[in-house]
Design a protein around this nucleic acid. Structure first.
Length: 501
RNA sequence: GGUCCUGUGGCCGAGUGGCUAGGCAGAGCUCUGCAAAAGCUUCCACAGCGGUUCGAAUCCGCUCGGGACCUCCA
């Protein structure tokens, strides 16, 4: 069964066929580094990290490009005509690039805590001003943009008229009809510069107080909201590439404008498959700055936010996101996060135990029904992922397997119930899906060597105490370690294990 | 106002018309020096009304509720 993904452009699931197999080009809209990332931002980056990992698992050679927007984008267009980044820089008495660097660093730190793989190319908007200007020049030359008072606007109506004939009207992605837009578009300042209200800026004239500014054929200014993605995706992935991703809220106008710009310049729809993840909500409302309900990632990790009853690890959040399908909304709550925390721990412990088992491949199964069930559950991992990346269903199967693994571990099921080949297959696929594709990892990593040695010593002493029925000593060790957050667990075979936190 | 999505058990969440998703929480049991962990069993469900169908959470209609986009937004 081949990979099928839901294409926002056609509004249906389609079989994924790369333009130039085995190569795959994927562009994902990255962050605007004018502030801290919040929980909502985590979703696309984790979702598309899993897409990236899964494509590689399937054997594709992927070039994953995710930009950093470190220039442009208005707080409120026209009102003070001030660049968001430069505005904040003034307030904080910082150099714009100092601010950009600070939030870029924070963003990279959060990405690595989530165990997101770095993209192959992470281009910045400020590093591609020339490419953007060149693209704007082409659009003007082709007659789809015009200059007004040092700014350049895209002529949406002309584009729509001409490209509707080619089956690609403005609004093709979001399903909007330009005529409706014209009537309902909100009143904005600087409208008088535009020929039509739906026209959007490619280049903005910089007023005197604007700090971030570049020379252009139209005077000093800075690029418009959408042109950077067109310029950078074209430069690194070509006129036509495979996958374009981002949050659903970018579908309009951002991705719609990207399509228009790129199509004029390159005479092609830029991407074949458009993937959009849904929003994270909180109390049913989208988490976003306009709603004043964001929880920043640093707050998630420390618990320092009034909406949080505790801190959550990056892996808990990653698991939480993977438990739902990426196209549905996902509601945040402490209860839900706590459930994820426990579930992840259970999954991880079973996976870890199983991966330590040495298997005799030649062994045959004594329980053929169970053996077949396990094989089926594992084989379905691929099947579910191929059905529009249904990570939730894969996890459901994993938990059925966790029960079986734990039963064997606790000797409720005989060790030879499964064939060696099945156990090896299970080990291999669990490793592939849990670690390589879902990108989950254990939280306890560093300085474990010495600590584990000390713990093992305590465990040995406790075992000896138990052996001579000195429960005062054994309970003391257990309880005091528990108070420090180290949980000891007696196992069936007289062994003992521990978990931190 | 326009376009679209959505309503699943205490909570979160999958669900291709017919077969208990799964997780967390609750109850009982097993194991255990006691716990914890784990296993087994179990409770709780498809917003409402009507229609199609042998059969609907799943298709259609209506009603009610929630949300997103139309403006920077992941």
């Amino acid at each position: 069964m081949p990979l099928k993904i839901y294409n926002s452009l056609t509004r249906q699931k389609e079989t994924f066929e790369p333009i130039h197999p085995p190569y795959v080009g994927m562009y994902v809209c990255g962050p605007t580094v004018s502030g801290e990332s919040h929980l909502g931002h985590a979703r696309p980056f984790i979702t598309f990290d899993v897409v990236y990992r899964y494509l590689m698992y399937l054997g594709y050679k992927v070039r994953y490009v995710r930009n950093i927007t470190d220039a442009g984008h208005f707080e409120e267009e026209g009102r003070d005509a001030e660049d968001k980044i430069s505005k904040k820089a003034v307030l904080e008495k910082l150099e714009p690039m100092e601010l950009v660097q600070k939030y870029t660093n924070l963003y990279h730190w959060a990405m690595s805590r989530f165990n997101n793989l770095p993209p192959n190319i992470e281009p910045t908007a400020t590093g591609h001003i020339i490419e953007q200007i060149e693209m704007i020049k082409t659009i003007i030359a082709d007659g789809y943009a015009y200059e007004a008072n040092g700014s350049v606007y895209f002529d949406v109506e002309k584009y729509n008229t001409d490209f509707s004939k080619k089956g690609q009207p403005y609004g093709i992605l979001s399903g909007r009809v330009l005529e409706d837009q014209m009537e309902n578009s909100r009143d904005l300042d600087n409208q008088e510069e535009k020929r039509n209200r739906s026209d959007f800026a490619l280049w903005k004239h910089a007023p005197a107080e604007h700090i971030m500014r570049w020379q252009s054929p139209w005077g000093e200014g800075f690029p418009g909201w959408h042109i950077e993605c067109s310029a950078m995706s074209t430069k690194y992935l070509g006129d036509e590439f495979d996958i374009h991703g981002g949050g659903m809220d970018l579908q309009f106008p951002h991705h719609e404008c990207e399509i228009a710009q790129s199509t004029v310049c390159n005479h092609k729809m830029p991407a074949r498959y458009w993937l959009h993840n849904n929003m994270i909500t909180i109390n049913g409302k989208k988490m976003g700055k306009s709603y004043n309900n964001v929880i920043r990632l640093t707050e998630m990790f420390t618990g320092q936010n009034a909406m949080l009853t505790q801190a959550y690890t990056p892996q808990t959040i990653r698991f939480f996101i993977l438990q739902s399908h990426y196209r549905g909304t996902l509601d945040f709550s402490n209860d839900a996060l706590q459930a994820s925390e426990k579930a992840l721990k259970r999954l991880w412990e079973a996976h870890e135990w199983l991966s330590r088992q040495v298997v005799t491949t030649a062994a045959t199964a004594t329980d053929h029904i169970l053996d077949n069930k396990v094989k089926k559950l594992v084989e379905e991992f691929d099947e579910f992922m191929n059905d529009d990346l249904n990570t939730a269903k894969v996890l459901a199967n994993m938990f059925e397997l966790v029960s079986i693994i734990n039963s064997i571990k606790d000797k409720h099921l005989p060790a030879d119930a499964l064939s060696g080949a099945t156990v090896t297959f299970l080990q291999k696929q669990l490793h592939a899906f849990v670690e390589e594709i879902f990108g989950l990892k254990t939280e306890r990593t560093e300085d474990n060597g010495k600590l584990e040695g000390v713990l093992q010593l305590l465990i040995d002493i406790r075992k000896e105490a138990k052996g001579r029925k000195d429960f005062v000593t054994s309970d003391k060790i257990r309880d005091e370690l528990a108070a420090l957050g180290v949980q000891l667990k007696d196992e069936k075979d007289g062994g003992m294990s521990f978990t931190l936190g």
